[in-house]
Amino acid sequence: MSEAIRLGVNIDHVATLRNARGGVHPDPLTVAKAAVAAGADGITIHLREDRRHIRDDDAERIRAWNGAPVNLEMAATEEMAEIACRLKPHAVCIVPERRAEVTTEGGLDVVGHRATLAPIIARLNAAGIRVSLFIDPDPAQVRASAEIGAAVVELHTGAYANGKPGELEHLAAAARLTEEVGLECHAGHGLTYANVGPIAALPQVRELNIGHYLIGEALLTGLPASVREMRRLMLAARNK
Rank of each mutant, 00 (worst) to 15 (best):
H25I: 10
I121D: 01
A68L: 06
A175D: 07
I215N: 01
V95H: 09
V131T: 15
G182M: 08
A218Q: 00
A218S: 15
R61K: 14
A38E: 01
T192K: 15
Q141F: 07
Q204M: 05
E184N: 12
N66E: 09
G112N: 01
R55Q: 14
R176C: 10
V227C: 03
H13P: 02
A144M: 07
N239E: 14
H156S: 08
D27Q: 00
I120D: 01
L47Y: 07
G163S: 06
R238S: 01
A146K: 08
R18M: 04
A194T: 10
V31H: 06
E73N: 10
A218F: 00
E207L: 12
I5W: 06
N162A: 13
Q141P: 06
T221I: 14
T104G: 09
I5S: 11
N66S: 14
Y160Q: 08
V152E: 11
E229P: 09
D27C: 06
E97H: 04
C93Q: 11
N162V: 00
E97W: 09
S226K: 13
E101P: 01
I129L: 07
A146H: 13
I5Y: 07
R55H: 14
H90L: 03
A173C: 00
A115N: 10
G188A: 04
I45R: 02
D12V: 13
K88W: 01
A172V: 05
G163W: 11
G67R: 11
T221M: 12
P96I: 02
E229C: 07
G197W: 03
V36F: 08
A118W: 04
R21A: 11
V111Q: 03
G158H: 13
T116I: 03
I94Y: 05
D58G: 09
R52M: 10
R98D: 15
R55G: 11
H53Q: 12
A146N: 01
G163Y: 11
A20K: 15
L168E: 07
L171E: 00
S226F: 07
I121R: 01
P139T: 13
M80A: 14
E229T: 15
I54Q: 06
A32P: 00
G211V: 05
L133K: 10
R6F: 11
R99C: 08
N209M: 09
G182N: 09
G222W: 10
E180I: 12
G211L: 06
H46T: 12
G8A: 04
A84I: 03
A115C: 00
M80V: 02
G107S: 10
I83V: 15
I94L: 11
A159M: 04
M234V: 01
I215C: 00
S145C: 11
D50Y: 05
H189S: 06
E79W: 11
L223C: 04
T178I: 02
T44M: 08
V102P: 02
A173W: 00
A76D: 12
T116V: 12
